[in-house]
Simulated assay, not measured.
Amino acid sequence: MATSKRQRVGILVIMIATVLGTLGSFAVMVLSMQSNRQAQAEYQKVLAEYKKNQAAYEEKKQAQTNALSAKYYETFKQYSDQVDKFDVNSVKSLSTEDLAEGDGAVIDSKTNFAAYYIGWDANGNIFDQSIDNNKLKDPLPVNGLSSAGIITGWKEGLKGMKIGGVRLLSVPSDKAYGEAGSKDKNGKQVIAANMPLKFVVMAIPAPENIPQPDMTKLLNAYQKSQQQR
């Protein structure tokens, strides 16, 4: 069927619009792909930088741990002979005994310090300690005795101790882990319910803080790389 001139012009306009639309979509797709490649490249660059900084942090942290271990291990290891079985009924209230008096500041609720320790139950089982294969682990940071990360027996029992000292704590269950006891990360019960505990704690000056690499830039780059997909 013959078409009029007006119809032919209309068809041509539609064809041109379709082609332009297709080209526009293709251009958008190309630009999106380029943007995605750029975002991915930036993320990989930031990730490599973060890994480098993290490795440097871990190296500094390990060097600090090793230096502290070399300084305190010989002194602290002698107190491992304190570990022994004890009568559950002998620990009804919190008691302390200074095995060595320090020469540093007196610990109060706001004192920042670090601690090496050995903890055991009435059966003489050590459930946690700072000694590991003839060296000391990274000491436990204590940012004031009011911090949430320590048991009541430590909050009350370490008060008045001097930095550099070693103290024996006898902790009743209600100031330790109470009726629930404590489980490890795999759900295994490591401290029985209503179990009194004993600790040998050495308080040392808080080590120099080594800041961890900031993850903000890495997270932002990752989110941007995902948004471009």
Rank of each mutant, 00 (worst) to 15 (best):
M1H: 09
Q7F: 08
Q7R: 12
V9A: 14
V9I: 10
V9Q: 14
G10Y: 05
L12E: 14
I16C: 06
T22F: 09
T22V: 09
S25W: 15
S25L: 15
F26W: 14
A27V: 06
A27G: 08
V28I: 14
V30H: 14
Q34A: 07
S35W: 10
N36M: 12
R37K: 11
Q38K: 11
Q38T: 10
A41K: 04
E49Y: 10
E49H: 12
K52Y: 15
A55C: 04
Q62C: 03
A63F: 03
Q64G: 11
Q64S: 14
L68K: 02
Y72A: 02
Y79H: 04
V83K: 06
V83S: 08
D84G: 04
D87T: 02
N89I: 03
S90Y: 08
V91T: 10
K92F: 11
K92E: 15
L94E: 12
E97S: 11
E97R: 13
E97M: 06
E101D: 14
A105V: 13
V106P: 07
D108G: 00
S109F: 12
F113E: 09
A115Y: 07
A115S: 11
Y117T: 04
Y117I: 02
N125A: 12
Q129R: 08
N134Y: 11
N134Q: 12
L136D: 01
D138G: 01
P139I: 01
L140W: 09
V142S: 04
N143W: 01
L145W: 05
S146F: 03
S146I: 03
S147I: 00
I151M: 12
I151S: 07
G153Q: 10
G157R: 03
I163G: 07
G165T: 00
G165C: 01
R167S: 05
R167T: 08
P172I: 01
A176F: 05
G178S: 06
A180N: 15
A180T: 15
K185N: 14
K185D: 15
K188L: 13
A192K: 15
A193D: 09
M195L: 01
P196I: 03
K198G: 03
K198V: 01
K198M: 09
F199P: 08
V201G: 07
A203M: 08
P211H: 07
T216W: 03
L218G: 05
N220M: 13
N220A: 15
Y222G: 09
Q223G: 02
S225T: 06
R229W: 01
